[in-house]
Design a protein around this nucleic acid. Structure first.
Lengths: 117, 117
DNA sequence: GATACTAGTTTCTAATACGAAACTATATGA
DNA sequence: TCATATAGTTTCGTATTAGAAACTAGTATC
Protein backbone atom coordinates (compact mmCIF):
# COMPACT_ATOMS: atom_id res chain seq x y z
CA UNK A 1 0.00 0.00 0.00
CA UNK A 2 2.35 2.68 -1.19
CA UNK A 3 0.98 6.12 -0.57
CA UNK A 4 3.06 7.87 -3.16
CA UNK A 5 2.45 11.44 -2.25
CA UNK A 6 2.44 13.36 -5.51
CA UNK A 7 3.45 16.95 -5.21
CA UNK A 8 1.45 19.27 -7.36
CA UNK A 9 3.31 21.16 -10.06
CA UNK A 10 2.40 24.40 -8.38
CA UNK A 11 3.97 23.38 -5.09
CA UNK A 12 7.15 22.27 -6.80
CA UNK A 13 7.31 25.56 -8.66
CA UNK A 14 6.96 27.43 -5.41
CA UNK A 15 9.76 25.48 -3.77
CA UNK A 16 11.93 26.19 -6.81
CA UNK A 17 11.14 29.89 -6.59
CA UNK A 18 12.14 29.83 -2.92
CA UNK A 19 15.39 28.11 -3.85
CA UNK A 20 16.16 30.63 -6.57
CA UNK A 21 15.55 33.62 -4.36
CA UNK A 22 17.41 32.26 -1.38
CA UNK A 23 20.36 31.17 -3.48
CA UNK A 24 20.64 34.73 -4.72
CA UNK A 25 20.10 36.52 -1.45
CA UNK A 26 21.41 34.15 1.21
CA UNK A 27 24.48 35.18 3.08
CA UNK A 28 25.46 37.84 5.48
CA UNK A 29 25.74 40.89 3.28
CA UNK A 30 23.82 40.83 0.00
CA UNK A 31 20.47 42.01 1.26
CA UNK A 32 22.14 44.61 3.41
CA UNK A 33 23.90 45.90 0.31
CA UNK A 34 20.67 46.11 -1.63
CA UNK A 35 18.83 47.65 1.29
CA UNK A 36 21.52 50.30 1.58
CA UNK A 37 21.30 51.10 -2.12
CA UNK A 38 17.50 51.31 -1.86
CA UNK A 39 17.85 54.02 0.75
CA UNK A 40 20.95 55.74 -0.55
CA UNK A 41 20.42 55.63 -4.30
CA UNK A 42 23.66 55.76 -6.26
CA UNK A 43 26.65 55.11 -4.03
CA UNK A 44 30.38 54.66 -4.42
CA UNK A 45 32.41 51.69 -3.24
CA UNK A 46 33.75 53.36 -0.14
CA UNK A 47 30.38 54.86 0.71
CA UNK A 48 28.92 51.38 0.69
CA UNK A 49 31.80 50.04 2.72
CA UNK A 50 31.30 52.68 5.37
CA UNK A 51 27.55 52.19 5.51
CA UNK A 52 27.86 48.43 5.85
CA UNK A 53 29.66 48.45 9.12
CA UNK A 54 32.29 45.73 9.20
CA UNK A 55 32.32 44.35 5.69
CA UNK A 56 35.70 43.46 4.22
CA UNK A 57 36.51 45.04 0.86
CA UNK A 58 36.94 41.63 -0.69
CA UNK A 59 33.49 40.55 0.38
CA UNK A 60 31.91 43.76 -0.82
CA UNK A 61 33.67 43.46 -4.16
CA UNK A 62 32.64 39.82 -4.63
CA UNK A 63 29.02 40.40 -3.65
CA UNK A 64 28.73 43.43 -5.91
CA UNK A 65 30.02 41.40 -8.84
CA UNK A 66 27.54 38.64 -8.14
CA UNK A 67 24.65 41.08 -7.87
CA UNK A 68 25.71 42.70 -11.14
CA UNK A 69 25.75 39.31 -12.88
CA UNK A 70 22.19 38.83 -11.74
CA UNK A 71 21.20 42.22 -13.13
CA UNK A 72 20.25 43.64 -9.78
CA UNK A 73 22.80 46.46 -9.79
CA UNK A 74 24.89 48.39 -12.31
CA UNK A 75 28.49 49.49 -12.00
CA UNK A 76 29.64 52.72 -13.61
CA UNK A 77 33.24 53.95 -13.62
CA UNK A 78 33.61 57.73 -13.43
CA UNK A 79 36.80 59.26 -14.83
CA UNK A 80 37.24 61.65 -11.94
CA UNK A 81 40.64 62.67 -10.47
CA UNK A 82 40.91 59.59 -8.30
CA UNK A 83 38.61 57.36 -10.27
CA UNK A 84 35.33 56.65 -8.58
CA UNK A 85 32.85 53.88 -9.20
CA UNK A 86 29.13 54.30 -8.82
CA UNK A 87 26.81 51.48 -7.94
CA UNK A 88 23.06 51.66 -8.24
CA UNK A 89 20.08 49.36 -8.44
CA UNK A 90 18.57 48.39 -11.77
CA UNK A 91 14.82 48.60 -12.21
CA UNK A 92 14.76 44.88 -11.59
CA UNK A 93 16.83 45.30 -8.46
CA UNK A 94 14.37 47.87 -7.17
CA UNK A 95 11.62 45.26 -7.28
CA UNK A 96 13.25 43.82 -4.16
CA UNK A 97 11.83 46.78 -2.27
CA UNK A 98 8.72 44.97 -1.01
CA UNK A 99 10.61 41.82 -0.11
CA UNK A 100 13.22 43.71 1.86
CA UNK A 101 10.50 45.72 3.53
CA UNK A 102 8.92 42.47 4.69
CA UNK A 103 12.29 41.20 5.92
CA UNK A 104 12.81 44.34 7.99
CA UNK A 105 9.27 44.33 9.32
CA UNK A 106 9.38 40.67 10.26
CA UNK A 107 12.83 40.96 11.84
CA UNK A 108 11.75 43.83 14.06
CA UNK A 109 8.62 41.98 15.07
CA UNK A 110 10.57 38.79 15.74
CA UNK A 111 12.93 40.63 18.04
CA UNK A 112 10.11 41.86 20.26
CA UNK A 113 8.49 38.42 20.08
CA UNK A 114 11.62 36.67 21.32
CA UNK A 115 12.46 39.28 23.93
CA UNK A 116 9.03 39.26 25.57
CA UNK A 117 9.41 35.47 25.97
CA UNK B 1 37.78 67.81 5.91
CA UNK B 2 36.49 64.55 7.25
CA UNK B 3 33.00 63.80 5.99
CA UNK B 4 31.98 61.47 8.76
CA UNK B 5 28.79 60.06 7.42
CA UNK B 6 26.53 59.44 10.39
CA UNK B 7 24.01 56.69 9.92
CA UNK B 8 20.62 57.43 11.39
CA UNK B 9 19.42 55.19 14.21
CA UNK B 10 16.54 54.07 12.06
CA UNK B 11 18.81 52.87 9.27
CA UNK B 12 21.00 50.98 11.70
CA UNK B 13 17.92 49.35 13.19
CA UNK B 14 16.81 48.29 9.75
CA UNK B 15 20.16 46.74 8.93
CA UNK B 16 20.04 44.89 12.24
CA UNK B 17 16.55 43.61 11.47
CA UNK B 18 17.80 42.35 8.10
CA UNK B 19 20.68 40.60 9.83
CA UNK B 20 18.38 38.97 12.38
CA UNK B 21 15.98 37.68 9.77
CA UNK B 22 18.63 36.45 7.40
CA UNK B 23 20.59 34.77 10.16
CA UNK B 24 17.46 32.82 11.00
CA UNK B 25 16.33 32.00 7.50
CA UNK B 26 19.52 31.83 5.45
CA UNK B 27 20.52 28.49 4.08
CA UNK B 28 19.19 26.07 1.59
CA UNK B 29 16.33 24.45 3.45
CA UNK B 30 14.81 26.44 6.29
CA UNK B 31 12.39 28.55 4.28
CA UNK B 32 11.45 25.55 2.20
CA UNK B 33 10.59 23.71 5.41
CA UNK B 34 8.44 26.56 6.65
CA UNK B 35 6.81 27.02 3.26
CA UNK B 36 5.94 23.35 3.18
CA UNK B 37 4.41 23.51 6.65
CA UNK B 38 2.44 26.60 5.66
CA UNK B 39 0.80 24.64 2.85
CA UNK B 40 0.63 21.24 4.51
CA UNK B 41 -0.28 22.15 8.07
CA UNK B 42 0.81 19.52 10.57
CA UNK B 43 3.28 17.08 9.06
CA UNK B 44 5.41 14.15 10.18
CA UNK B 45 9.16 13.86 9.77
CA UNK B 46 9.02 11.53 6.80
CA UNK B 47 6.28 13.53 5.15
CA UNK B 48 8.48 16.58 5.32
CA UNK B 49 11.46 14.62 4.05
CA UNK B 50 9.50 13.40 1.06
CA UNK B 51 8.09 16.82 0.26
CA UNK B 52 11.50 18.48 0.45
CA UNK B 53 13.04 16.62 -2.40
CA UNK B 54 16.65 15.80 -1.66
CA UNK B 55 17.12 16.85 1.94
CA UNK B 56 19.27 14.59 4.12
CA UNK B 57 17.64 13.41 7.36
CA UNK B 58 20.42 14.96 9.37
CA UNK B 59 19.85 18.36 7.80
CA UNK B 60 16.11 18.14 8.29
CA UNK B 61 16.58 17.16 11.91
CA UNK B 62 19.05 19.95 12.59
CA UNK B 63 16.98 22.63 10.89
CA UNK B 64 13.82 21.54 12.68
CA UNK B 65 15.59 21.80 16.02
CA UNK B 66 16.85 25.25 15.20
CA UNK B 67 13.42 26.42 14.09
CA UNK B 68 11.93 25.03 17.28
CA UNK B 69 14.46 26.91 19.38
CA UNK B 70 13.34 30.08 17.64
CA UNK B 71 9.72 29.32 18.42
CA UNK B 72 8.70 29.05 14.79
CA UNK B 73 7.56 25.43 14.95
CA UNK B 74 6.45 22.91 17.58
CA UNK B 75 7.35 19.22 17.84
CA UNK B 76 4.86 16.75 19.22
CA UNK B 77 5.59 13.03 19.77
CA UNK B 78 2.59 10.76 19.19
CA UNK B 79 2.58 7.40 20.97
CA UNK B 80 1.37 5.48 17.94
CA UNK B 81 2.47 1.94 17.00
CA UNK B 82 5.64 3.07 15.28
CA UNK B 83 6.01 6.37 17.05
CA UNK B 84 5.34 9.37 14.89
CA UNK B 85 6.35 12.96 15.39
CA UNK B 86 4.24 15.87 14.28
CA UNK B 87 5.66 19.22 13.33
CA UNK B 88 3.59 22.35 12.89
CA UNK B 89 4.04 26.10 12.79
CA UNK B 90 3.47 28.23 15.85
CA UNK B 91 1.37 31.35 15.54
CA UNK B 92 4.60 33.27 15.37
CA UNK B 93 5.87 30.95 12.64
CA UNK B 94 2.75 31.60 10.64
CA UNK B 95 3.60 35.29 10.52
CA UNK B 96 6.23 34.32 7.95
CA UNK B 97 3.41 33.81 5.49
CA UNK B 98 3.65 37.24 3.88
CA UNK B 99 7.43 37.16 3.72
CA UNK B 100 7.51 33.73 2.08
CA UNK B 101 4.78 34.81 -0.30
CA UNK B 102 7.00 37.70 -1.37
CA UNK B 103 9.97 35.36 -1.76
CA UNK B 104 7.98 33.05 -4.04
CA UNK B 105 6.52 35.92 -6.02
CA UNK B 106 9.86 37.60 -6.50
CA UNK B 107 11.61 34.33 -7.38
CA UNK B 108 9.10 33.51 -10.09
CA UNK B 109 9.33 37.01 -11.50
CA UNK B 110 13.12 36.95 -11.38
CA UNK B 111 13.19 33.73 -13.37
CA UNK B 112 11.21 35.23 -16.22
CA UNK B 113 13.27 38.40 -15.99
CA UNK B 114 16.54 36.52 -16.37
CA UNK B 115 15.27 34.16 -19.04
CA UNK B 116 13.88 36.88 -21.29
CA UNK B 117 17.34 38.49 -21.31
C1' DG C 1 13.96 -14.77 10.31
C1' DA C 2 14.14 -11.14 6.67
C1' DT C 3 12.23 -6.87 5.34
C1' DA C 4 10.39 -2.42 6.05
C1' DC C 5 8.59 1.56 8.35
C1' DT C 6 8.95 5.04 12.13
C1' DA C 7 12.46 9.02 13.50
C1' DG C 8 16.17 10.08 13.84
C1' DT C 9 21.99 9.97 15.11
C1' DT C 10 26.92 9.28 13.96
C1' DT C 11 30.86 9.75 11.22
C1' DC C 12 33.41 11.44 7.71
C1' DT C 13 34.29 14.50 3.81
C1' DA C 14 33.85 18.26 0.41
C1' DA C 15 32.43 22.73 -0.62
C1' DT C 16 31.53 27.36 0.51
C1' DA C 17 31.60 31.54 3.22
C1' DC C 18 33.80 34.72 5.80
C1' DG C 19 37.49 37.52 7.56
C1' DA C 20 42.07 39.72 8.57
C1' DA C 21 46.09 41.59 6.63
C1' DA C 22 48.86 43.08 3.25
C1' DC C 23 49.34 44.76 -1.24
C1' DT C 24 48.53 47.27 -6.13
C1' DA C 25 48.05 51.40 -8.78
C1' DT C 26 46.84 56.10 -9.56
C1' DA C 27 46.45 60.77 -7.93
C1' DT C 28 46.15 64.73 -4.79
C1' DG C 29 47.69 67.77 -1.20
C1' DA C 30 51.03 69.21 2.81
C1' DT D 1 58.72 63.03 -0.06
C1' DC D 2 55.22 61.40 2.91
C1' DA D 3 50.48 60.66 3.92
C1' DT D 4 45.93 59.90 2.31
C1' DA D 5 42.22 58.91 -0.75
C1' DT D 6 40.25 56.24 -4.65
C1' DA D 7 38.81 50.95 -5.77
C1' DG D 8 39.82 47.24 -5.42
C1' DT D 9 43.01 42.20 -5.51
C1' DT D 10 45.87 38.58 -3.36
C1' DT D 11 46.94 35.41 0.06
C1' DC D 12 46.00 32.73 3.76
C1' DG D 13 43.46 30.61 7.37
C1' DT D 14 39.26 29.48 9.95
C1' DA D 15 34.41 28.47 10.40
C1' DT D 16 30.22 27.10 8.81
C1' DT D 17 27.28 24.36 5.70
C1' DA D 18 25.91 20.59 3.32
C1' DG D 19 25.78 15.90 1.89
C1' DA D 20 26.56 10.84 1.60
C1' DA D 21 26.55 6.57 3.91
C1' DA D 22 25.95 3.79 7.50
C1' DC D 23 23.88 2.92 11.77
C1' DT D 24 20.31 2.69 15.99
C1' DA D 25 16.08 1.13 17.99
C1' DG D 26 11.35 -0.09 18.34
C1' DT D 27 7.42 -2.22 16.00
C1' DA D 28 4.96 -4.67 12.45
C1' DT D 29 4.43 -7.40 8.43
C1' DC D 30 5.51 -11.36 5.18
Amino acid sequence: MKEEQKLSKECIGQLLAIRDTMELLSGKWKIQIIGTLLRGGTMRFMELKRSLNGIAPKKLSNDLQELELNKLITRKVKETKPITVEYSLTEHGKTLDNLIGEIIYWGQNHRTEIIRK
